[in-house]
Amino acid sequence: MIRVTGLSHRIGASTILHDLDLTLPRGKLVALIGPNGAGKSTLLRLIARLEPLQQGRIQIDGLDLATTPSARLALAMAVMGQQARIASRLRVGELVGFGRWPHHHGRPRAADHQAVDQALDAFGLTPLRHRFLDEISGGQAQRAHLAMTFAQGTDWLLLDEPLNNLDMAHARALMARLADLVRGSGRSVVTVIHEVNYAAAWADHVVAMKDGRIVAEGAPATVLTEPVLSALYDTPIEVARHDGRPLVLHHHRHDDLDAPCPGPATETRLALH
């Protein structure tokens, strides 16, 4: 499991994370949700050692982030940041191949080639494997990047908003892929998700953050409720149920549609004051 203790983070004068204590379970699909600026990405990036640790302690399966060499951590967790597209002119297959680098450091073996083939296959990239990254679409490049993370073959996968740039079909396929990874091969996934319904449909564990603090955590049914979400996003939100899971109806309010000039509902206006 990932254990976070006393984690604080500052950028300039503003505090992004306030003394967090958090335990992320192994073998689960964990979704980090919350409004913009809640600190979700910062938390994920700190766990992934993409940002230097300022205060607090992070352990991944007993490996202390502060003392474990980066090369060793690359065998325990793979990470995909929110980075814009990769500018390098690599073929898709070559990029995914670099995901195996922590294992072979330049001398790929049969198992490495096999892992690359599997990753390409899992993300529907086999037909594109010889294409250059700068000659495919943004969504395809993103999938190639994900496949590289996947090929790294680590117990932990940390993803910062992996659904960005993906269309409905690919977004759903990715969530199914992640869920399958967790249920089928016992890996653990932590992902920042903006669209809460993907968390509702696929996550095993949801962590809700706001203003650098954990507001709620637990099973989707206990976190994705009307009172929690309404407070989390400062907007009245309805939650229905679908296939036995929460379905968050956040796109409009009933009275918005009837109003001559759709605007924020009364409660919202009150809440804003």
Partner: peptide
């Protein structure tokens, strides 16, 4: 060569792969 190729993928990717 591999190290330079990974570095040109960006600092985040390089760190993720355990490369300084």
């Amino acid at each position: 060569a591999d190290r330079f190729a990974i570095l040109s993928l960006g600092d985040e990717v390089a760190t993720g792969l355990g490369l300084s």
